[in-house]
Nucleic acid binder design. Sequence first.
DNA 1: TACACTCGTCTCTTGTAAGAGACAATCGCT
DNA 2: AGCGATTGTCTCTTACAAGAGACGAGTGTA
Lengths: 262, 262
Amino acid sequence: MQDGNAPAVSAGEKISGSREKGLNRVLEILEFLHTTQRAIGIGDLARGVNAPRSTTYTLVGSLVDAGLLEMESDGNRVYFGKKLYLYGMDYVRGNDLLRRGRQEVDNLSRETGETSELCMLQSGRYTIVHASPGTRPFRISSATGLQIPLPWTASGRLLLAGLGRADIEGMVSDDDLVLPDGRKLRLDDFVTDIAKARVAGYCVTSGLVDAYTKCLAAPVFSAPGKVEATMCLVVPIDTSEERTGELIGLLRDRAARLSIAA
Amino acid sequence: MQDGNAPAVSAGEKISGSREKGLNRVLEILEFLHTTQRAIGIGDLARGVNAPRSTTYTLVGSLVDAGLLEMESDGNRVYFGKKLYLYGMDYVRGNDLLRRGRQEVDNLSRETGETSELCMLQSGRYTIVHASPGTRPFRISSATGLQIPLPWTASGRLLLAGLGRADIEGMVSDDDLVLPDGRKLRLDDFVTDIAKARVAGYCVTSGLVDAYTKCLAAPVFSAPGKVEATMCLVVPIDTSEERTGELIGLLRDRAARLSIAA
DNA sequence: TACACTCGTCTCTTGTAAGAGACAATCGCT
DNA sequence: AGCGATTGTCTCTTACAAGAGACGAGTGTA
């Protein structure tokens, strides 16, 4: 099942100089566009991925021809293209878990009115694969494709369940342990949390990503013991014990349902 | 607005021999997976894109590491990966027309019960960008991402509106003019159809792709005169004149609504 | 047991693509 | 008008990736 889950540290980190393989440059370009989330000029792009201008022009040209990128109408800025959308839909079609997971998440947020998300590991990082906003007046931050440090989330604790301490260390950088408000988690505590979450079969974190929400998560298994994804709910931090319990029950039920036929 | 709309003939066609650029190989690999629509062994993949085995292993390795492809659990076969899905969602988010178009198509098929589609040009080919099945017992062929020769479709006639005869010829191969049942269209007739569709503001074709359906299409404009997409309905060929008229009216209305804010 | 495969991994060579840099054309700002 | 920054295109060199092919291990079948 080796997928794109390389250690987040990305090893060499490449001093950037020297000749870089074209394909790698392309991968960096795509990743860069993914982070900027908007069309960008080719010059800026070259600077952004730290590649020579001439090379960038050639590569972007190829990608535009292939339809992976599209040129904005101003004839300068580029962003993702239709072809990537089509490939993405192919992925969804070939992936039962994702297809059904999206459905369940949408249902869940409609039924509960809370923000609901489907999360997975992607290249060793926690990724919100699908999100459904819920009906609360305050829109809680949660965009599809968003990547967040594992230790900030309840889902992260579940996704790492079953891994050894060494593996966990490999996937968590020092920066990841620093919360948005500046507090720093201890790695030991994080490892302990993971073990606890594993036996509990769910996980709740309060006020980690921000001070006003808590996050409830339940694991989705692809095989006994193997956590493939998590479903989670983001609720106001003052949600009552009782309702929190209900929601966790519901969440675990739905997550278990997803696990069955995977 | 130059996007991936290169002429379908693909010019050189490359005799395949010799050294091929890694990036191009990758693009072929992606396209190949898109046509097979399922995971495939690396050996077969190499054969399929007609690339050396050793090269294919290296490239697939990179793509899997990057998360663009994922290795099936059997450790041999590969298919599209999560990252492509994420990039695809980025595309949707950055593309008002597509986002709203998907919505309208879903609405339309729910309201009418007929199969509805959003279509665009992609790399010079007619592409079903989004499809919603409708409620009829017979499921009409229509999968997202499917690519069909332009002359087979009503949408194709609208998408080429405004192009000169030379451009049209460039985008249509001889094979494209041969219908699934073996009949061959004359290029002149096709060009005439396009002109007619343009002034009419909609297009209907009967029994082209198969003998039992007709296809109603209306244009979506991104700028005055520029057809960016089409919405279409696929209905049984014996649908009454009256209902057909109603549906066309509805279709044109929705397509026009899409055009406004583009 | 031998045969004909496919698979994953390696090594070595050489054709070529990545990159440096120069260029004219625009753009924006005093 | 004058200046600096940016944009798209081009040429030339050489570092290096694509490819050929060999290898042993595994798999199926006669």
